[in-house]
Amino acid sequence: MWKKFKAWFHQWGSAPWFYRRSTRWERWLWAGTIITALPALFMGLFVVPTDYLQGDSYRIIFIHVPSAWMSMMIFGVMALLSLVALVWRIRTTEIMAMACAPIGAAFTAITLSTGSLWGRPTWGTYWQWDGRMTSELILLFLYIGVIALYQAIEDKRQAARAAGLLAIIGVVNIPIIHYSVQWWTTLHQGSTIKLTGPSSIDASMIAPLLLMVVATKLFFAATLFTRTRAELLVQDRHKKWINEVVAS
């Protein structure tokens, strides 16, 4: 059983195998994204009740919080893939790790902009240099740094190794973002959804949030496959397997 799984898992390292398999998986992932994201958005924006203090502006939580989680999770995934790529030198893993960066950067940008738009009516300011906001902004710069480094080096395999090391080092920022609201006094509030203990959001409001959390994960997986496949196409454009894939 384990041997079979191991053999199957190793096959993903081969570019043609990855290309064919991911094409098949992608459809399901994209379908899953749509059937979770649309109801989540509809429920979040129209169905669930308003908040007692913030009125309707709190509905930004259904975009902001899942995006913020993704911005951190994707960085972790990128670092882990980079570690595997650095140690085992698997080309598909290198490409996959680098494909994470623009997706994570987009989620970080969404987190920062939605937070800023919500902050103006709630706090009375678009931006303040508190621990949570500053560390999240650094995360965006780290993502941009990884993308820039990968683009700056001609040899894509060397580029992935250099940028991958930056991704691994950048991981130290993730606990800082998470704990910033506990270590320091911040303008940003503490966590609403807690892994241990009860969450401080009423049960009637939580369904779209959880659905959106699933939707963003599926979206990430789908985009990751698409981006990796696209990069494989570019890098292997002169190779024989591409012709076979395109012909079929």
Partner: peptide, 17 residues
Amino acid sequence: TQVLAKHDENYMPPEVA
């Protein structure tokens, strides 16, 4: 010279409040 409102992490409908 500036006063900002700090929001807490509690979210609930008016009836629950």
